[in-house]
Design a protein around this nucleic acid. Structure first.
Length: 332
DNA sequence: TTAGGGTTACAG
DNA sequence: CTGTAACCCTAA
């Protein structure tokens, strides 16, 4: 009777990963106490979790160190390295014919994107603004705060979704989770700090009004062809119905539950399923990021970051248009 | 409690 | 025998 090594089951591993995703690496005790995971990990100690995580990380390091680091660092750090869209999922592509992969054709950064020229970047926030005004449909137009609230809601949602994408991709790169989650958080805070955003928005609105793309009446903005608007609708409709004003807290809860349920579903995916989902997610995030980077490159210093975030939101918007509800099945 | 170095069990 | 995964020890 020595000490029978107790090998980690896939379930335990999944729970650990999910726990790290939810609480962050290093919060071993917290993960262990979380009722969501305690059922699976009840016979592991916090030290066990730590060690296992270390093993996983080591494994990930040896696995695809080159493409891993790139995905992780690419954003935020506009390194003068723009490899074309080299994605890190070869290991997966062999068998990703499941229902999980959307059938939507999707040009990540391949040839079909005509690279609409510099003008493109100046359009991004504009489009969001148009979208906002159009969606709000307030008689007499919408004021800046309404527009800001709408855009911020959308942006927060998409940032969250982007985050989810990262989670999915991390599933295979545990060691980069520690690196990324703070990045994403900082990203969010930094770019979407209300003050900064309001400033940008004001400038844009002013510019649009001057251009005649918007009509300013009193303190409200409306679209020129106000009477016959096309039947466009907000992207998030049908699943939550984002109200024009949604307070921070509510939004956070929404995001949080979204994350929770997504974690739950991810936890129960098989490797192949998760891989397929991750591949898709990465491709989409890649597309969004690529656009954001392109924008950032041409934007100027002060506005660059905010512009990039705007670009991201817009790109994400576009990307997500085709896919309504993010497939998220809740289960315990 | 955690991070990190070290040790033991086990598979190939 | 060698590498890896689980487990142990200890400073902070």
């Amino acid at each position: 009777m020595g000490a029978p090594k107790q090998k980690w089951t896939p379930e335990e591993e999944a729970a650990l990963k999910a726990g790290v995703i939810k609480h962050g690496p290093g919060k071993w005790r917290t993960i262990l106490k979380d009722p969501q995971f305690s059922g699976v990990l009840y016979l592991r100690s916090n030290v066990d979790l730590k060690d296992k995580w270390r093993n996983l990380s080591v494994m990930a390091n040896g696995w695809g160190s080159r493409e891993k680091a790139r995905v992780a660092l690419k954003r935020i750090h506009p390194v003068p390295d723009h490899g074309e869209s080299s994605m890190a999922l070869e290991a997966v592509s062999s068998q990703s014919d499941d229902d999980l992969v959307d059938s939507r054709p999707h040009p990540p950064s391949g040839g079909s994107s005509p690279n609409d020229g510099p003008k493109r970047s100046i359009m991004r926030l504009d489009n969001l603004i148009m979208e906002a005004i159009n969606h709000l449909r307030e008689p007499g137009g919408s004021n800046k705060n309404s527009i800001a609230a709408y855009i911020e809601s959308i942006a927060a949602a998409f940032l969250a979704l982007w985050y989810l994408y990262l989670l999915a991709s991390h599933y295979f790169l545990p060691s980069s989770t520690a690196l990324l989650s703070p990045l994403v958080n900082n990203h969010q805070d930094q770019y979407w700090a209300p003050a900064n955003f309001k400033r940008i928005l004001s400038a844009k609105l002013k510019h649009l009004a001057a251009n005649g793309r918007l009509v300013k009446i009193k303190r409200k903005y409306k679209l020129p062809g106000t009477s016959t608007l096309s039947e466009r609708r907000g992207p998030m409709e049908g699943r939550q119905g984002i109200s024009p004003r949604i307070d921070r807290e509510e939004m956070n809860n929404l995001i949080k539950s979204q994350i929770d349920s997504t974690i739950a579903s991810i936890s129960n995916m098989t490797a192949q399923e998760a891989a397929a989902a991750a591949a898709q997610a990465i491709a989409e995030a890649e597309a969004a990021i690529a656009e954001a980077e392109e924008a950032a490159r041409e934007a100027e210093a002060a506005e660059a970051d905010a512009e990039a975030a705007q670009a991201f939101a817009e790109a994400a918007l576009k990307t997500m248009k085709g896919r309504n509800t993010p497939r998220v099945m809740v289960q315990t």
